[in-house]
Simulated assay, not measured.
Amino acid sequence: MKGVAIPVIVVLAMIQFMANPGQAITCGQVDASLAPCVPYLTGGGNPAPACCDGVKNMKGMAATTADRRAACNCVKETANHYANLKDDAAQALPAKCGVQMNIPISRSTNCDIVN
């Protein structure tokens, strides 16, 4: 019986690793990255350098489709907390920061279609 227990434990550990290979991006990470962007997103103008650094950081963290969808949902949830968020500023943010990103910054995006 002892000889069977160790291989079973190893197989179970491998299955757990395959089912959860890494940690997904969290809303805390997304919020921290985009916090410097709030003045731009609510007031317009040009984003601060710290904001653009956060956009680049978020893009780097969202390497997989699952991460991009999670980040999209976080952005959407946070955007809904700011009644004065300017949608045009939000949509223009990645371009203003010189970042091509597949994560829309919007209150109304269907994040399930993000690649």
Rank of each mutant, 00 (worst) to 15 (best):
T78W: 08
A79F: 07
C27Y: 06
D53T: 13
N80F: 12
C52H: 08
A89E: 12
V55D: 00
G45Q: 10
K86Q: 15
R69T: 05
K56G: 12
V55F: 00
A70N: 09
N84F: 15
G28C: 08
V99C: 03
L93M: 07
K86Y: 09
A63R: 10
K96R: 13
V55I: 11
C52A: 07
D88K: 11
V30N: 01
L93E: 06
D67F: 02
G43T: 02
K86R: 14
T64F: 00
G28L: 09
C97N: 01
M61T: 06
G45K: 09
T78H: 11
V55S: 00
G98M: 04
T42R: 07
N73D: 14
G54H: 07
A83C: 06
P39M: 05
A35P: 03
P39Q: 11
L41K: 01
Y40V: 01
Q100I: 14
E77M: 13
D31H: 13
N84P: 04
S33M: 13
P49R: 15
Y40A: 01
N84G: 08
D53C: 04
A71L: 10
N57F: 01
A50M: 03
Y82D: 05
D88H: 12
Q91W: 03
A92I: 03
T65W: 11
L85W: 15
L34R: 02
K76A: 12
T64E: 06
L93Y: 04
Y82G: 06
R69N: 10
R69C: 04
M58Y: 01
Q100T: 15
K59H: 07
Q100D: 09
M61D: 11
Y82K: 09
E77T: 15
D88S: 14
A63M: 09
P47E: 12
V99T: 05
T78N: 09
A50P: 03
E77L: 12
N84W: 14
C52G: 07
L34I: 04
A89L: 02
A90F: 03
A90C: 00
A50E: 13
D53F: 03
V99A: 05
L93P: 03
L93R: 01
E77V: 12
C52P: 02
Q100H: 08
Q100L: 14
A70G: 06
D87A: 15
K56F: 04
A79V: 05
A71F: 01
G54T: 10
A48V: 11
D88G: 04
L34A: 02
N84V: 11
P36Q: 14
G28P: 04
Y40L: 00
N73P: 03
N84D: 14
K96N: 10
A32P: 02
A70H: 06
S33E: 09
A79P: 04
A70K: 11
R68K: 15
A90Y: 05
